[in-house]
């Protein structure tokens, strides 16, 4: 059984059919790429997968279970985590606290434990330890006490991924994780993403603009154009497909 199976997914905004008859099948452990020109509907698909938008048609099966209609935080509990195209951190909280928010649903204690501090303090220490482990993977451990909004741009993108991983997801959605990074930073990030997949046993679906970059890391690609699937398959086949070349370069 595939980890994620999306069938005939569609959504309309007024007259605009932003996504139509979208199908995708992602196996556990895969590193999957979703590409397409501006406005193709990539982010909209992430918003559908995470419950931000309710689809007008179709189904989304995570581990065989339909998650359409579930609320956003429930879908997070089901095991889908994401990052955002325009970074969304908890700016006035520290780097460490940002990751601890990600751990919120796994490390629980009652309100009274919080008020009397016991055993909350122990749980908090466990959370801190786990958060630091995650931050270390991203080279952010040293910055744990900084305010998230004071991090440089590239680090903020990494922190967003760290926070998403803290929710212990089965499926990690990354929306243009390399946007705004220079080639060196991008390469480093791609290595980190590969590492993360091994270390956290997570399946990754990532959106990227840059086809070259995506072909280096993804095992399978879906190309989206005007809200519909243009083609799907192995990167080398997809990127040599004349339809794809036309979509990117124009007629």
């Amino acid at each position: 059984m595939a980890l994620l199976e999306v069938k005939n997914l569609g959504i309309s905004f007024g007259g605009l059919r932003a996504v139509d008859d979208f199908n995708i099948r992602i196996e556990e452990g895969q590193l999957y790429g979703l590409i397409g020109p501006n406005g193709a509907g990539k982010t909209t698909i992430f918003n559908l997968l995470t419950g931000v938008y309710k689809p007008t048609d179709g189904s989304i099966l995570l581990d065989g279970k339909n998650i359409v209609g579930k609320s956003i935080h429930k879908i997070s509990h089901e095991g889908i985590a994401r990052t955002f195209q325009n970074i969304r951190l908890f700016g006035k909280m520290t780097v460490l606290e940002n990751v601890k928010v990600g751990l919120h649903s796994q490390y629980k204690y009652s309100l009274f434990a919080g008020i009397f501090q016991y055993p909350a303090i122990k749980k908090e220490a466990q959370m801190t330890e786990r958060a630091m482990e995650i931050l270390e993977v991203f080279g952010l451990a040293e910055d744990a006490e900084l305010l998230a909004s004071n991090l440089p741009y590239g680090q903020q993108r990494k922190l967003e991924i760290a926070r998403a991983l803290a929710t212990n997801p089965k499926l990690l959605l990354l929306d243009e994780p390399a946007a705004g990074m220079n080639p060196n930073e991008t390469k480093e990030l791609m290595d980190t993403i590969r590492l993360v997949r091994e270390k956290f046993h997570v399946t990754v679906l990532l959106i990227e603009h840059d086809m070259k970059l995506v072909s280096g890391i993804c095992e399978e690609l879906t190309v989206l154009n005007f809200g519909t699937v243009l083609t799907q398959g192995k990167p080398e086949d997809v990127l040599n497909d004349p339809k794809v070349i036309t979509a990117y370069l124009g007629e």
Binding site: A81, R82, F84, R88, M93, H104
Partner: peptide
């Protein structure tokens, strides 16, 4: 922590569970 997360970015807070 959850309350301050909602304040700082409710969209991200919700997506974080």
């Amino acid at each position: 922590r959850a309350i301050t997360a909602v304040r700082d970015n409710y969209i991200a807070a919700e997506a974080t569970g």
